[in-house]
Design a protein around this nucleic acid. Structure first.
Lengths: 183, 183
DNA sequence: TCACAGTGCTTTGAATTCGAACATATACGG
DNA sequence: CCGTATATGTTCGAATTCAAAGCACTGTGA
């Protein structure tokens, strides 16, 4: 076998096969889960997983949310959100209106129909998740999994800019050259 | 099924809030991770995550793989794989050829250029994964995560057929299939 | 040999997604 | 008060994805 394994640049360690394996199996399992979940949502509520996420976040939000807040919460590009919001508004599941404070902002809220749809699909959604994800896990596994992923999520949320924000507020300790975009 | 009618608002659900939380945070964290990883692969190797997965699987495979084997391994529709294989072949990263045994089968293999590309992007790929995923985790966390997701993956792999849309059991209005679905 | 079901892959059409460019609105410095 | 930079949302074009339909081959039974 050709062992073409060039030593990684400077800082390179031989990659932990255990880390690599955990990472790959994580991505694979989530992909599988997402496919099944998507199919379930489409069958029962005729919505996609993204739309489900949007509705769920709006349902849990206190009042209205701006488009950017919503996109950030769901890990989504703003243009993609515009598209989905158009669909959801046309379906009567959400409302879009101007903000009294900022003329440029658009406030989004869920409608009663949206809440009803969410309530209708949620049980089945949970059932699928349970049979695929929770079934082979013990309570301890589940607690550990939630704990682990929460830490990972929080860690990632502090690191990178999301959606398309070039620089909202980025206290980067090692990013002095913001690539002077001046003319 | 019919008595599951909890209050629409938060709180009272027959659904485990802990399960739900673990599930949601899992999906969110993986989404974030995938976005970052995708960006890294695009920057360093000008490939998508799917293409990276395909190359990685081919690199680890003993010889050639059929399209279906490859699609199943990567959680992918076969038509989508045709598209990506076309791109990868055009880029000279893989080869497609007929099978000596089955005329209808297409055997796929990675080229030297493909291996070289993989070796070039892998270190950066691992670095991103490490800084985002492994960094906030202990070795024990990582071991547990790999174990958990492996079990979940295996569990899901036994349940539903992926990619290969079961054309075997066509639920036609006539001629009920006489079962006996054996491999 | 022939018909027919089963398998492997590709083509097609529609839907979804993102990044870049755009129009508008706000904040800041002079 | 103007001029520039920044923020917000939308539009546009390109890329990607999937399911359904189609084509080609295989294997089995009559």
């Amino acid at each position: 076998m050709t062992d073409t394994r060039p030593a990684p640049d400077a800082a390179g360690q031989a990659l932990d096969p255990q880390q690599l394996g955990a990472y790959f199996v994580l991505m694979e399992a989530v992909s599988l889960l997402q496919h099944q979940v998507e199919q379930q949502l489409r069958t029962e509520g005729d919505i996609s997983y993204v739309q489900f996420q949007l509705l769920a976040r709006l349902a849990h939000a206190p009042g209205h949310l701006t488009m950017t807040q919503l996109a950030d919460g769901v890990v989504y590009s703003r243009s993609g959100l515009t598209y989905q919001a158009g669909l959801l508004e046309k379906a009567g599941l959400i409302t879009r209106g101007p903000s009294p404070d900022d003329e440029r902002a658009t406030l989004v809220a869920i409608t009663e129909d949206g809440r009803a749809l969410l309530d209708r699909v949620l049980p089945g959604h949970i059932q699928v998740s349970r049979s695929l994800l929770f079934d082979p896990l013990t309570d301890d596994d589940l607690r550990h999994l939630g704990d682990i992923m929460t830490r990972v999520r929080d860690h990632m949320r502090t690191q990178p800019p999301r959606s398309a924000a070039p620089r909202k507020r980025r206290p980067g300790p090692t990013s002095p050259p913001p690539a002077a975009t001046q003319s």
